[in-house]
Computed example of a mutant assay.
Amino acid sequence: MNRFIYMGAAALMLFGSASCSNNSKQQGTSESKAPASVKEDILVGSLNVIVDASVFPLLKEQEDVFLSAYPNAKLNFIAKPEVLAVKNLLEDKGSVAILARKLSEEENKNFASRSIQPRVFPIFSDAIVFVSHTNSSDTSVTIQEVLDLMKGTSTSGKRLLFDNLNSSSFRQLKSLGNLDKVASSFVEGANTAKEVLETVAATAGKIGVISYNEYLDLKLSFSNNIRILSVKNTIGDKPDNIYYKPNQSTIAAEQYPLRRTFYVLNYQPNLGLGLGFSAFLTGDRGQRIVLKSGLVPATMPGREIIVRDKI
């Protein structure tokens, strides 16, 4: 109930502010930047947003639409692998974060000591995907095969190449296998998803591990040499031992096993721009951008149907 009250209030504030903005434009008084005398509110000011680098392409799309609607706002994205993103949030380098997990009780202590209560809402579902060279004989993989590589017990001769060893993908798979340590025998780390695809496109013996959002953003550049692998659904609430490729449908139906939910974590102590941007991300326009991008929105946006008496 609190979530709906919060988001409803934010939506009303967004609508009201948008109406004022439109009136100003009609009167010829709009400006590209917020005047120094204007107090920061939910649609005015500057906001540092810490973003898990694996979904940065989608957040850039969100930014473009948000700023076109609210030109008095400014978003400064800090894109980092998950471990560094959380560290930046705890160091107050940004008050809003887009992450594939919520902060732990221990991590929240610093904010609680300052009486800051987070506003946390799901935005969309993404997935971890595996890619290989088209010359590789592999077209599928099991989670157990991946975990065996991470444990160092595999005899397949393959190697895993992660986008970053501080990434949310690495953390999720490590947690899935209850691994305290990961053997370096068959595991490597790159710096970016692009670097992963470049390496896999040139090497038949490696399996790249990136986010589905990054794959969608980069696949056209490597489409001739990259193949996305099917994964056997053996975990979660609906295991059926069938191999699925990641796509919007299999993620939404919970058939593809390596899904993960991304959240907006708003630790801004006041009702500032963090509230406005959070409301945008979880609102109809933000969710439509998610749907168009190929990921799965947390709330399916409504459809507008026009009924005419005559054709």
Rank of each mutant, 00 (worst) to 15 (best):
I5N: 13
M7H: 10
G8T: 15
L12F: 15
L12K: 14
L14T: 14
G16L: 13
G16M: 13
A18Q: 12
S21G: 10
N23L: 14
Q26D: 03
Q27N: 14
S30F: 04
S32V: 13
S37A: 10
K39R: 05
E40Q: 10
G45V: 00
G45D: 08
N48C: 00
D52C: 08
S54D: 13
V55D: 13
L58T: 11
L58P: 13
L59G: 02
K60A: 11
V65N: 10
F66P: 00
F66R: 04
L67I: 14
S68H: 12
K74V: 09
K74T: 14
L75A: 06
F77E: 01
K80T: 05
K80I: 00
E82L: 14
N88E: 15
E91M: 11
E91Y: 12
D92V: 03
S95H: 07
S95D: 14
K102P: 03
E106L: 05
E106K: 10
E107R: 03
N110V: 13
N110L: 11
A112H: 04
S113L: 12
S113V: 02
A127T: 07
V129M: 05
F130S: 10
S132L: 00
T139C: 01
V146G: 05
L147R: 08
L147K: 05
L147S: 06
T155Y: 07
S156F: 04
G157I: 02
D163H: 02
F170Q: 01
F170L: 01
R171A: 10
Q172R: 08
Q172F: 05
S175Q: 12
N178C: 03
L179I: 01
K181I: 04
V182P: 08
S184G: 00
A190Q: 08
K194D: 15
L197G: 11
L197I: 08
V200Q: 05
V200S: 07
A201C: 12
A202G: 04
K206S: 10
K206Y: 09
I207P: 10
G208W: 03
I210K: 00
S211Y: 11
S211C: 09
Y212V: 03
Y212Q: 06
N213S: 15
L216N: 08
D217P: 03
L218V: 06
L218R: 03
F222R: 01
N224T: 13
I226L: 13
I226Q: 11
K232M: 15
N233S: 15
I235R: 03
D237Y: 04
P239R: 02
D240V: 09
Y243E: 14
K245Y: 15
N247F: 09
T250S: 15
T250A: 01
I251L: 11
I251Q: 02
R259T: 14
T261V: 14
L265Q: 10
Y267N: 11
Q268R: 02
N270W: 07
N270M: 06
L271R: 06
G272I: 10
G274E: 07
G276Y: 04
G276N: 02
A279P: 06
L281A: 08
L281E: 07
T282R: 07
T282I: 09
Q287N: 05
R288I: 01
R288D: 09
V290T: 08
S293H: 02
L295P: 03
P297L: 05
A298R: 00
T299D: 04
M300K: 12
I305S: 01
I305W: 02
R308K: 11
I311L: 11
